[in-house]
């Protein structure tokens, strides 16, 4: 490479870098939101379709990979199903009782806030524990809104444009959600770890957490309303450094295969 070519290349690269920094600055003050909106309008329909197909291909490949384990899994599920029928019957009775009690005490029946249905348009779970959905400011979604799937906590709206939003998932290592055990009511903080596991920490020494116990959001000083499911405890460890306990929690939902989620607006 002669000196002139080298000089030209360095100049072009420097210009690109300066433009990049300028764009970063403009983005940080929210001056180029329209560009994101135009891109979303042009790409969201295609991405919805692509995401659907990706889930189908994954399901198909998953079946091929697990074909030998299917019989065993089927037997296990049948047993679980029988057990769940019993639990559903008990729960139906409890729900009626609970509704009647709530009416008498004047407690609202549903989670506060408006609910908006959204399609998942892509996921970057492996890379940064986030998914993207096809609703945004135009649907009154705002930063900090809670995203759920049924009774499962999914995440928080991290970045919002007019027609799409990015959700930081509960499995993010920085999530730190206040939670409690369903059975023994032990309080703690939960954050994501590698894979599908999460770690519940800051459990006081006197509190009891059991293996298999369901962990729910506590709703205390958190965007998440109380009672949303986070996962199931798989193991418990004592932390000798600060005398607290820690529990490993496995999330019960496959976040990479979500197609529809619900945004609870007005929680933030």
């Amino acid at each position: 490479m002669n000196f002139n070519t080298f000089k030209d290349r360095m100049l072009i690269i420097s210009i690109v870098l300066i433009v990049s920094v300028l764009l970063l600055l403009l983005d940080s003050i929210g001056a180029i939101g329209a560009l994101y909106d135009i891109t979303a309008l042009a790409t969201v329909p295609l991405r919805v379709e692509l995401h659907d197909r990706a889930i189908k291909v994954n399901d198909f490949l998953g079946i091929i990979g697990k074909i030998s384990l299917l019989q065993e899994e089927n037997d296990k599920l049948k047993k679980e199903n029988t057990k769940l029928f019993e639990e559903i019957a008990t729960l139906k009775e409890l729900r009626i009782e609970n509704t009647n009690l709530k009416k008498q005490l004047g407690i609202p029946e549903k989670i506060e806030g408006e609910i908006t249905q959204a399609r998942v348009i892509g996921n970057a779970i492996a890379l940064n524990n986030s998914i993207q959905i096809n609703v945004g400011e135009s649907n009154d979604v705002s930063q900090g809104d809670v995203v759920v799937f049924g009774k499962y906590a999914i995440g928080i709206v991290q970045r919002v444009e007019s027609y799409n939003s990015r959700i930081s998932l509960v499995t993010s290592p920085t999530s730190n959600i206040p939670v409690r055990g369903q059975k023994n009511r032990a309080l703690g903080l939960i954050a994501g770890e590698v894979g599908n596991t999460m770690r519940m920490s800051n459990i006081l020494p006197g509190e009891i957490v059991e293996e298999g116990e369901i962990i729910l959001t506590s709703g205390v000083e958190s965007e998440f309303p109380s009672g949303l499911i986070i996962g199931k405890v798989t193991s418990i460890t004592k932390n000798p450094a600060n005398a607290t306990q820690e529990a490993e929690v496995e999330i019960q939902i496959d976040l990479s295969r979500l197609d529809y989620v619900y945004v609870i607006r007005g929680q933030s």
């Binding site: 690109v16 433009v19 990049s20 764009l23 983005d27 970057a124 993207q132 939003s165 990015r166």
Partner: peptide, 14 residues
């Protein structure tokens, strides 16, 4: 498309 801060990728690449 992925809602990164605009300019992040070009900055990281160059």
């Amino acid at each position: 498309i992925v809602q990164n801060p605009l300019g992040k990728t070009t900055f990281s690449l160059f």
